[in-house]
């Protein structure tokens, strides 16, 4: 495991992050966007954990941050789902392209 080294984890994390961004940018379904956001968060989480493992100065902090992000992701999902639900109630759709009331 330790023979693997840090870079493969970072590459995986970057791949996950890219997938998340593409998912957020490409999906029109709000739920899909939310799933993309979860991917991005988990990419970050993977980074934290990897650094905690391979950087001795970062051992404890990395794991704490990872836990924090998990909690944050849960909270975020709850708020986002609430917003989506409300949006659906008002617009009878979850298409994010229709959510343009605040445009200039």
């Amino acid at each position: 495991m330790s023979a693997l080294g840090l870079p493969p984890f970072l590459v995986l994390s970057a791949f996950l992050f890219a997938c998340g961004v593409v998912c957020v940018a490409a999906r029109r379904n709000a739920i899909g966007v939310l799933m993309g956001v979860e991917l991005i968060l988990n990419a970050a989480n993977l980074n934290f954990v990897a650094f905690a493992r391979f950087n001795p100065a970062f051992r404890l902090e990395g794991q704490v941050f990872a836990l924090l992000v998990v909690v944050l992701a849960a909270a975020e999902a709850a708020v986002a789902l609430a917003i989506i639900l409300n949006f659906y109630n008002n617009h009878a759709t979850v298409d994010v392209d229709r959510a343009d009331e605040l445009k200039g």
Partner: peptide, 18 residues
Amino acid sequence: GLRTVQTGRLRGYVVALA
């Protein structure tokens, strides 16, 4: 001129961000 940048298209924003 600048108000036209605010399209309200969420996905556009994300692309711009990225």
